[in-house]
């Protein structure tokens, strides 16, 4: 399967939300989280604090596309979890990103040395 084509197809609709979407999916990859827990987790592993409006805009898109789903909760803070479709899309996207990163690093090493 052409991973790059699959990746661009899954993330094509996200536009400038592709970044937040990737961070949210990566955060949910190790379990369910509600909005505030997502913000703190993403801040800890990516050094980026997603503003509330941006976070929920991306959450709503991901939910509309079936990549995440809300979990029933008695708490006012609804947790979200990754769906199988979301896991597939995230894997394809990260594989593609890794290939780009590896290629860039190889070219850098070839032209600019290992420093």
């Amino acid at each position: 399967m052409n991973v790059m084509a699959k990746d661009s197809e899954e993330f094509a609709g996200f536009g400038r939300y592709a970044g937040p979407a990737t961070l949210i999916l990566a955060s949910l990859a190790d379990g369910t989280k509600h909005g505030y827990a997502l913000t703190k987790d993403i801040e800890s592993f990516a050094g980026v604090r997603l503003a509330p409006g941006t976070l929920y805009e991306a959450l709503a898109r991901l939910e509309a596309q079936g990549m995440i789903e809300g979990v029933e909760s008695h708490d006012r803070r609804r947790p979200y979890r990754l769906t199988a479709a979301g896991a597939t899309a995230l894997r394809a996207h990260l594989d593609n990103q890794r290939r780009v990163a590896e290629l860039g690093l190889r070219r850098l090493a070839g032209s600019w040395g290992g420093a």
Binding site: H34, G35, Y36, T39, P52, Y56, A60, R76, R77, R78
Partner: peptide, 17 residues
């Protein structure tokens, strides 16, 4: 319509923020 779906949880996030 958005508030009906996300309003409560979004307000909780805003309060924490």
């Amino acid at each position: 319509s958005w508030r009906d779906r996300y309003g409560e949880e979004f307000a909780e996030l805003l309060i924490a923020d």
